[in-house]
């Protein structure tokens, strides 16, 4: 009988050692629409806290501890739309760093529950101001209470793209045996696309690296940022990108549904948008009669976005 999956570490000293080295899944059903092109997705939902953000959170916290930036009695504070918060919560618990998160009040209930389970303190910002409102509130709190908080600021912290430069990119290169021709993924903080693209371009300048952004300020691709209407992250570096795809919400949502029904991959809407972007690139190649190996990211699982059932409909905010 064939093995269930490729060999993984079976015994580690800390949950944080299970971050990264995520599998790459071929999307055989989706790629039927782009003959001659292989589509692969990196299953970041297999990280221990369930999303691609585990990588950045670990690198950010490890870097801060190494520099002595988190002193005894201090709490880590950052603003997040959800997944980074859950990742900080897990890494903080495992490494003994207390965590405070600033989130827009309309983050999904499961996210609030998961972060609370790890023992973090949550401070809510206005649901009308989105993630930029959370950023502004986190900055105010840090200013008001100097010495209480260590503020890593995931949007400006080089350890965020640094995590993907050091791990995600070489993993993809190795997993595709150097055959990757295109890398494409959405912008949240831009850490994944900037760090991975920077390294991939260094390894092989021929690889095309493409970012995805929602096509409008008013969008439903949770976790993705429409930069023309947002605070632009300091770590964002257009210089490492070859192109940007402007993704309609419906195209991303429809692909998320297809992934669950056709590939057995129940993932969030941002993952749907990523695969929709990968398929667009695949179709362009197929239309020109070219072959290619397109790689994208599955950021998290779909069950992180379940809305409350009717009898649970009392929203907290």
């Amino acid at each position: 009988m064939a093995a269930l999956r490729a060999k993984r570490a079976v015994c580690v000293d800390s949950i944080t050692e299970l971050i990264g080295n995520t599998p790459l899944v071929r999307l055989h059903h989706i790629e039927r629409s782009c003959p001659g092109v292989e589509l692969y997705a990196k299953a970041e939902f297999t990280n221990p806290a369930g999303s691609v953000k585990d990588r950045a959170a670990l690198f950010i916290v490890r870097d801060a501890l190494a520099r002595g930036a988190i002193r005894p009695g201090m709490r880590l504070i950052d603003s997040t739309s959800g997944n980074t918060g859950i990742a900080y919560a897990m890494v903080g618990a495992a490494l003994g760093v207390p965590v405070t998160l600033v989130m827009p009040e309309n983050v999904t209930v499961p996210r609030k529950q998961v972060t609370t389970a790890y023992g973090v303190e949550i401070i809510y910002s206005s649901p009308m101001e989105g993630s930029d409102g959370a950023i502004v509130l986190a900055r105010e709190l840090v200013e008001r209470h100097p010495g209480r908080y260590f503020y890593p600021d995931q949007y400006s912290n080089p350890a965020n793209p640094g995590a993907h430069y050091a791990t995600t990119a070489p993993e993809i290169w190795e997993q595709t045996a150097g055959r990757i021709t295109h890398f494409v993924t959405g912008i949240g903080t831009s850490g994944t696309v900037v760090g991975t693209s920077r390294r991939l371009h260094e390894i092989s300048p021929a690889i095309r690296c493409v970012a995805i952004q929602p096509d409008d300020a008013m969008h439903g691709l949770e976790g993705m940022k429409h930069l023309p209407s947002s605070l632009v992250p300091q770590i964002y570096d257009e210089g490492v990108l070859d192109d940007t795809i402007w993704m309609p919400t419906d195209e991303g949502w429809d692909m998320a549904e297809r992934l669950a029904e056709e590939e057995g991959l129940f993932v969030g809407h941002s993952s749907g948008a990523n695969v929709a972007g990968a398929l667009r690139l695949g179709r362009e190649l197929a239309d020109r009669g070219e072959r290619g190996v397109v790689v994208t990211i599955l950021c998290d699982r779909g069950d992180r976005y379940f809305v409350p059932l009717r009898w649970e409909r009392n929203y907290v905010w």
């Binding site: 997040t80 309309n106 940022k225």
Partner: peptide, 10 residues
Amino acid sequence: ISIVPAIAGG
């Protein structure tokens, strides 16, 4: 009446 969009990234 509140009109609430999805949450942008990070």
